[in-house]
């Protein structure tokens, strides 16, 4: 237990010490949320102003819509890239120190996953610094639900990263594979646009993408799906359906937890059987 804790602690301490990384982590979200979000939001507003808009849609604010997606993006990026440290440890030789010690491999994977998840949670929570500027109102109910939701997603994504990292020897190789994963998963998750009116093939991929349910879960919590008028739910693409069944927040959390469990077991197996 203490072994898992110290491996976790190592990642968290390094995150806190790395100020440059902390500062630069705001760049991408700022660009998406403030620059892209406001630009796109303005365009949508002017489009709506020219035609007949159903009542209730006046409340559609693209920047607000994007905010949960940006949380998703930040958590996803941070969690998946946290596994880079495994590859770097291997490159810089530190992994040998761990591998020659009597620590069970399973503990190493758990510690690393928890470390990556914690860092991604902290990073995701930092994004809430944007909240005062985009007009989202938070309440204790939202905060109490969003923290475990972010952690759950971060843990699952971390396990994916560690599964990939478990067999790779170079940082370049890891980054290449992760880049191949990151962009399609993000673009097809509903983080940047409402999941409405997609072509059939795209709809299928979106529904297969686990990140879709993570982003939708964040949207449902942060934008308060329960209190939303139906017309706005539709416009924001929040009525996600799989096989005719309307997906609930609880379904999504359950699915992500299950997916995470499978991933971490695979990561443990892969890490334990690989020749370091």
């Amino acid at each position: 237990m203490e072994q898992i804790l110290y491996i976790w602690y190592r990642d968290v301490v390094k995150f806190v010490r790395d100020r440059t990384r902390l500062a630069s982590s705001f760049v991408m979200p700022f660009m998406f949320l403030i620059l892209f979000g406001n630009g796109m939001g303005g365009a949508i507003k002017s489009l709506m102003a020219s035609g007949r808009v159903p009542a209730g849609l006046a409340g559609f604010d693209f920047v607000k819509f994007m905010f949960p997606g940006i949380i998703g993006m930040t958590v996803f990026n941070t969690a998946i890239f946290s596994a880079l440290s495994i590859v770097q440890d291997r490159e810089f030789g530190f992994m040998k120190e761990i591998m020659v010690s009597p620590v069970p491999r399973v503990h190493i994977v758990l510690g690393k996953t928890l470390g990556g998840a914690t860092v991604a949670l902290l990073q995701g929570l930092l994004m809430f610094l944007f909240v005062p500027f985009i007009g989202i109102k938070l309440n204790p109910g939202i905060v109490l639900r969003v923290i475990p939701a972010i952690f759950l997603v971060a843990f699952t994504i971390s396990s994916i990263g560690i599964l990939v990292a478990s067999r790779l020897k170079t940082a370049q190789g890891f980054q290449m594979i992760i880049q191949l994963l990151v962009f399609p998963m993000l673009f097809l998750s509903g983080a940047y646009f409402p999941l409405n009116g997609m072509p059939g093939w795209m709809n299928i991929i979106v529904k297969l993408n686990p990140l879709t349910y993570a982003v939708d879960l964040f949207k449902k919590i942060i934008l308060e799906y329960d209190k939303m008028p139906e017309v706005l739910r539709q416009a924001m693409g929040l009525n996600l359906q799989v096989g005719g069944h309307l997906v609930t927040a609880a379904n999504e959390a359950g699915f992500i937890a299950l997916f995470g469990a499978v991933m971490i077991v695979l990561a443990m197996w892969s890490f334990s059987t690989v020749e370091q």
């Binding site: 072994q3 110290y6 190592r10 440890d89 810089f92 530190f94 992994m95 120190e97 761990i98 009597p102």
Partner: peptide
Amino acid sequence: DPSLDENLTALENLKLHCVMY
């Protein structure tokens, strides 16, 4: 080849080792 964590202090490296063992 070196196998220390260069981004931790000397003390932290030693503590980590104690925990692992």
